[in-house]
């Protein structure tokens, strides 16, 4: 499978990224149950699944890889990311764990252009997010470049961030209509499909304030997917939910992850969720990667003391 995948992604994904790195991590990662599920959405299975795609309009097709190259991010004197290097393969699902302040969320926010990059390069596919070519030189990106690059990325926030001045339907159609240029009918159709997918087809005319936290987060997930991103960023998406609502949202995300071939970056404190959803886990501390590996290894037999301490502290809570 890995060779076909990288062939497919070839023009978009491999160019700026040493292909050995990404394909190295892929074959190692699948857990027994994952590899079975993966066979369907990834690679050549895509075209045969079109029937389902209409019912569940999840993004399919070439997802770009992501690569951080000596990325530095400071907030004042506080250095949050120190020359961080890491790669996420096309369609790979990676979970970032680590103590708070370790820079996990900052990584997602840099990818969503919510924070400015201080130094280094961030590649999405074979293009740099924060830099563009001009006259053969690499210069800081302008608004237009950022706008183009953001088309590939979607994000779900801890606090949902639905627009309170719009009902559920308009929350889902506003972006597709205004930004992607879809007709209103197309956008409504897409919104309906996604609301069915997240199990809220009957809430289409509701107002966000009439929904529970779990429902709001489902709408937020649908809203992000309506923009058909290739990379989806999940920033502690269940942290703000009441305990009894957490599992439902996690199950939904797990289904979405399995049925789509999005490149997924996930920050979470829910270790079982991390284990379920990811191909690979990165353990962060002090703005650098302490340890990485498939979830079974990180959660089962972590080699670093800091990882063991962190997992112990999280599981104790």
């Amino acid at each position: 499978m890995p060779p076909t995948e990288s062939d497919e992604v070839g023009p978009g994904g491999v160019g700026g990224r040493p292909s050995s790195e990404s394909t190295d991590t892929e074959p190692e990662s699948p857990t027994p149950k994952d590899s079975g599920d993966d066979a369907v959405p990834k690679g050549e299975g895509v075209s045969t699944e079109k029937g389902d795609a209409a019912a569940a309009p999840l993004p399919r097709g070439e997802a770009p890889g992501i690569r951080f190259e000596k990325v530095i991010k400071r907030f004042g004197h506080n250095v949050v990311l120190r020359e961080l290097d890491f790669t996420v393969g096309p369609g790979e699902r990676v979970t970032l764990i680590g103590p708070s302040g370790s820079g996990k969320t900052t990584i997602l926010r840099l990818l969503m252009t919510l924070e400015k990059l201080d130094e280094g390069l961030i590649w999405i596919g074979d293009e740099t997010l924060w830099h563009m070519e001009r006259g053969g030189k690499r210069v800081p990106a302008n608004q237009k470049h950022l706008h183009e690059m953001r088309k590939q990325v979607g994000m779900v926030f801890q606090q949902f961030n639905l627009f309170p001045n719009m009902n559920v339907l308009r929350n889902l159609t506003e972006g597709p209509v205004r930004v992607l240029g879809l007709s209103r009918d197309e956008a409504v159709e897409r919104a309906k499909g996604l609301l069915d997918l997240v199990g809220l087809g009957d809430k289409i005319d509701s107002h966000p304030s009439q929904l529970s936290g779990g429902q709001q987060q489902r709408v937020a997930i649908a809203r992000a997917l309506a923009m058909q991103p290739r990379v989806l960023l999940l920033d502690e998406v269940t942290s703000a939910l009441d305990p009894e609502l957490v599992v439902g949202v996690q199950d939904l995300l797990r289904d979405i992850a399995r049925q789509s071939d999005l490149t997924l970056l996930c920050v979470t404190h829910e270790m079982t969720f991390a284990k379920d959803i990811s191909d690979r886990v990165l353990m962060f501390d002090g703005g650098q990667i302490v340890e990485e590996g498939p979830p079974d290894q990180i959660f089962g037999e972590p080699s670093e003391q800091r990882t063991r301490d962190f997992l112990q502290a999280v599981l104790a809570s």
Binding site: M112, Q143, F157, Q159, F163, G175, R178, V179, A224
Partner: peptide
């Protein structure tokens, strides 16, 4: 600020951020 960030995540242009989200709220 979270509302502004949501508009960025949905790739709104600066004008759309103001007109569709920030100004109405």
């Amino acid at each position: 600020k979270a509302q502004f960030e949501a508009t960025v995540a949905l790739n709104f242009t600066p004008y759309q951020r103001m007109r569709r989200v920030l100004l109405p709220q």
